[in-house]
């Protein structure tokens, strides 16, 4: 057995910071749940959601992401508090469907050349909110398998959700950075880049759907 030299181990018995322990554990679980290649489905959804935007559109993107966050936080909490029942298999199937539909919506927008009106559309905000509900149910499946329901449930839920949001912000920043590199530095046309991202999301989500059927 290794010797535990962390400060909290050395000062145990004098200072017991269980609340801090719980926060860091569930923050870590939330963060690593989304900031990981195994979370490819959530990441792809963010890719599809951002595909039409660049750094300059950050205000519109912020509203869109807030809608998604609001959506998934609501269902995550409702599911963990046992207010809504969750069918894990159905949710796992619905998640790639949300990616597919977002990619199709992007393709339609690009094809119809509604480029200028993008972001003004309420459809996209409603989509982000509604699809957020489904992703939140997916997060709840994961959180549930690590929870101790008899203990500070809200604290665990809160820390997990913050972990998810921080992971999400980093992923978004990376997507926008890639968009900047490809469209500004490598001079790829914006609609070509948006089409590429959406096509990637479309292909992978279709694969994920077929894989589950």
């Amino acid at each position: 057995m290794s010797i535990d030299l962390r400060p909290e181990a050395l000062f145990l018995g004098q200072k017991r910071d269980t609340l801090g322990d719980i926060f860091s554990i569930y923050f870590n679980i939330g963060f690593s749940h989304i900031y990981d290649m195994a979370a490819i489905d959530h990441i792809l959804f963010l890719v599809a959601l951002c595909a039409l935007f660049t750094v300059k559109d950050w205000r519109k993107l912020l509203v869109l992401i807030t809608a998604f966050t609001l959506g998934h936080s609501i269902t995550l909490a409702l599911a963990i508090l046992d207010i809504i029942p969750i069918n894990a298999r159905l949710v796992e199937l619905l998640i790639p469907i949300t990616i597919l539909l977002t990619a199709i919506y992007n393709g339609y927008t690009l094809w119809k050349d509604k480029w200028q009106s993008r972001g003004k559309s309420r459809t996209q905000y409603l989509m982000a909110l509604g699809f957020g509900w489904i992703h939140g149910m997916g997060f709840s499946n994961y959180l549930r398998s690590t929870l101790f329901p008899e203990e500070k449930l809200l604290g665990q839920l809160f820390a997990f959700n913050i972990g998810i949001e921080v992971g999400q912000i980093i992923i978004l920043a990376k997507i926008l950075l890639l968009t900047f590199i490809f469209t500004q530095l490598l001079k790829i046309k914006r609609n070509h880049w948006a089409f590429t991202l959406s096509g990637l999301a479309f292909a992978v989500s279709l694969y994920l759907i077929i894989d589950q059927l």
């Binding site: 195994a38 796992e92 398998s145 096509g199 292909a203 279709l206 694969y207 994920l208």
Partner: peptide, 20 residues
């Protein structure tokens, strides 16, 4: 590009396996 993304799609095979 679009067609080739179907070939990288199977990389997502391990999607959502969580180990806890």
């Amino acid at each position: 590009l679009f067609i080739s993304s179907f070939f990288i799609a199977p990389l997502a095979e391990e999607a959502h396996e969580f180990h806890v």
